[in-house]
Amino acid sequence: MLAFVIRRVGEALLVLFIVALVSFAMFKFMGDPIQSMVGQEATLVDQEELRERLGLNDPFPVQYVAYLGRVLSGEFGISYRVGLPVEEIILDRLPATLELALLSGLIAISLGIFLGIYTAIRRDGFVAHFIMTTSLIGVSLPTFLIGVFLIWIFAVELNVLPSYGRGETLDVFGVPLSIFTLDGLKSMILPAVTLGLYQMTLIMRLVRSEMLEVLRTDFIRFARARGLSNKAINFRHALKNTLVPVITVTGLQLGSIIAFAIITETVFQWPGVGLLFINAVNVVDIPIMSTYLLLVAVIFVTINLIVDLLYFSIDPRLKVGGGSKGH
């Protein structure tokens, strides 16, 4: 198992190394940074001098290694537009995105698993058919449309939930969070539902099909023949056997909730990193864009690593030295 963990960490580092290369290349190929830094009156000599001073004439690999060194020591550069260190700007925005992603992930996972089990067990029932049909909407409608619909219904027509912003925040260990105030929580509901709806329907459909698969297996039949209650069969035996694929997909989905909250954050003007990124794209603020890319990669790689480790706690067949007859 230790060897497995070491191998996976190695792979993760390789992925990050390559992503760092891409995000560094953005500086090189998306316009000339010198042009964005110097004023209009600067002469070509001034520009050349600055280029030399910043090390931009060094060969690419040398520049890349220098960049890696700065990244590892926590220096991501200065935002072209705001003029502040990128890490400060992003850290300032990150809590908003994380709490939104966490809430919508929680909604997606709990509701997705619950509805998945329900529609699998009652697969011929009217309610199950209704849920399955409606879930198609969740899968097929684009996120921004769902967000706009929800704003129209709950903010404009019913006027019960705010349509933009974080609402009131409460500082927890110096980090402002919306989730602990009533106003903040109300502000979170619409964006969280919008962000989580697609993932929820995806998890639900996955749990349902996996459950149906497992419920057909011999050991479920044998469990019935042993006189176990339906509750024990559905939850203790069937659900646990569906978890490996469900966790894989859920992990990746959680990653994309955090990484691609861009659209939802734009629709709801949620001041998170997604909104920051989209604004950065508008003004070609490359340090922010490339750091965002790195951040997303780190989140994905970390979640994947956690998912891989979770397999071990679920499936005993994966443990090394667990026996010779596994399949």
Partner: peptide, 29 residues
């Protein structure tokens, strides 16, 4: 079922829940 009528199926490889120890499965029954 299980109390007064016990069953044995054809394929022992697939009759047991792979994620539970045999002891857990017997104790559960």
């Amino acid at each position: 079922r299980g109390r007064r009528i016990g069953m044995v199926f054809q394929d022992p490889l697939t009759s047991l829940n792979p994620l539970m120890t045999v002891g857990e499965q017997i104790m559960e029954t």
